[in-house]
Design a protein around this nucleic acid. Structure first.
Length: 398
DNA sequence: ATTCCACAGGAAGCGACGGCCC
DNA sequence: GGGCCGTCGCTTCCTGTGGAAT
């Protein structure tokens, strides 16, 4: 075949090549789809509890539990939207407010956020908390209405600021004259109520709903639904979605992880100018997500932890079994060379445990008889990448 | 059976820091 | 803007321990 006929117009064909994505938005965490597969039971349950709001009555407070990526937030936001829409249609004043307690994590900020959400003018700081509470009451009572407050990541709030805010909010109805409030608390932590005062526990936990993790088949359905919106037709290889689902299912059935995998796989394919997303792209996406995760963790480590980690890398490169004592000696020398004060062994021992929790290394307590008891340390991450990161960061510091 | 190494990891407390509150 | 208080990162001091060596 004549090469000119085969390749003539090759640039045009590349330029005209269709992109893989139709609308990447559908794969983002913030996207709320119109249907939520495999959460029908939970949605119905929530709707039943909240329905009284549409008759002007006060719904029970609700606690929702479930691991990350099980749909707690998305379902709550969905139901809140439905509730307000129906309220509008029926002419019943219902309002829902969403607060993420990981960001809004003090008593003052929660109350101020609510008050501002209902139109009160409250400064970001400065007022006594009681005054903010008063402003919130006043605004709420301006009309007869039912208010549903969603407190996402409520466990973080309790951990940071105690249960005082929640106590005030659960008692707010006795201070309100015409308005009514109920609370939906969302928690990742199943044991979180044990930190609560028993009075708060009983009133907040009127109703409890547990969101189970998705299994691989359910994740597939979710991915297919989103993929229909996000990708051009026929660009996904047959095995792509099942593979994303299987990888995420291994990771506690986290739907967020599954969507990330699919999105990153698509991005890799698109960047490389491939027409289809294949199994290979997904595998690389999986690696990339993990590497990004580790790189981010290493970058945000405090200087002393980085120094210790660097010492561990040096030891690992010598191919030895690392123990706490050896790591400490290398770390001390490293500090001396950089003229940085070194920490005590006790603290280093704790830092090793912290790195263990982060998944950067694994430790095992071993006894070498007469030669003492120690921890055997093994790095769990590819050392080349993090070595460069630490070298860069330390050069900036020194 | 006893000793003793080289740490593990708990308890208490200290100074610096930042945010709340008036 | 300054007092107060909780938190964080760290040190000091401590008791506990599995098993090779004696």
């Amino acid at each position: 075949m004549d090469i000119r006929t085969t390749f003539s117009g090759i640039f045009e064909s590349i330029l005209q090549r269709e992109p893989i994505f139709k609308s990447k938005e559908a794969l983002r965490h913030s996207y709320t789809p119109t249907e939520l597969p495999h959460r029908e039971k939970e949605i119905r349950h929530l709707a039943n509890i909240l329905a009284p709001a549409l008759k002007g009555e006060t719904p029970s407070n609700i606690l929702i539990y479930g691991k990350s990526g099980t749909g707690k937030t998305i379902v709550s936001k969905f139901i809140a939207r439905e509730l307000m829409n129906t309220g509008k249609k029926l002419g019943v004043p219902v309002k829902a407010m969403y607060i993420n307690c990981e960001i809004t994590d003090t008593k003052y900020r929660v109350l101020a956020n609510l008050a501002m959400g209902f139109g009160a003018k409250v400064p970001f700081t400065g007022w006594p908390t009681d005054k903010v509470y008063g402003a919130l009451l006043e605004k709420l009572d301006e009309q007869k209405q039912t208010v549903v407050v969603i407190l996402d990541e409520i466990d973080k709030l309790v951990l940071k600021s105690g249960d005082e805010v929640i106590y005030s909010l659960t008692r707010i109805n006795s201070d309100l004259k015409s308005a009514r409030m109920s609370i939906i608390g969302i928690s990742n932590d199943l044991k979180f109520t044990s930190y609560l005062d028993s009075r708060v526990k009983s009133s907040l936990g009127d109703e409890e709903i547990v969101f189970p993790p998705y299994n691989a088949r359910q994740l597939e359905d979710i991915l297919r639904q989103r993929a229909r919106i996000a990708f051009k037709e026929g660009v996904l290889d047959e095995c792509v979605i099942p593979l994303c689902a299987a990888l995420a299912a291994r990771d506690h059935g986290d739907a967020r992880r599954a969507l990330d995998l699919l999105r990153v796989a698509g991005e890799i394919a698109e960047r490389e100018g491939d027409e289809y997303v294949t199994e290979e792209h997904v595998k690389r996406a999986n690696r990339k997500i993990e590497e990004d995760h580790i790189a981010k963790a290493v970058k945000t480590l405090p200087t002393q932890s980085k120094l210790l980690l660097y010492s561990l890398i040096l030891l690992e490169e010598e191919g030895k079994n690392i123990t706490t004592g050896e790591a400490y000696e290398v770390y001390k020398k490293l500090c001396k060379n950089l003229s940085i004060d070194h920490l005590t062994l006790r603290r280093i021992s704790d830092i090793i445990s912290e790195l263990d929790i982060l998944g950067i290394l694994r430790t095992r307590v071993i006894s070498r008889g007469r030669y003492g008891r120690t921890k055997e340390i093994k790095l769990e991450v590819p050392i080349d990448g993090i070595k460069i990161i630490i070298e860069d960061e330390l050069r900036l510091k020194v």
